[in-house]
């Protein structure tokens, strides 16, 4: 991987995290949007939401 080439003195661009596994943040993102745990579990049980094993 190649670093962002530009230099910015106050707000430097950077590689802060690696690319995510499929669905790595599924649960956290829905929870942050106010979706309850029971609804998230129901989506997962129905196969409509995927998280890494």
């Amino acid at each position: 991987m190649v670093e962002p080439p530009m230099r910015m003195s106050r707000t430097p661009p950077a590689i802060r995290s690696m690319a995510p596994l499929l669905g790595a943040d599924s649960r956290a993102i829905l929870a942050e949007a106010g979706i309850g745990e029971a609804d998230i579990d129901a989506l997962k049980a129905g196969g409509a939401l995927i998280e890494p094993d």
Partner: peptide, 18 residues
Amino acid sequence: LYVNRNKRSLCLDLKNAA
């Protein structure tokens, strides 16, 4: 890996209404 650094992944089957 290259083009998806710094991102979060949300995996959904969007054909499902819920």
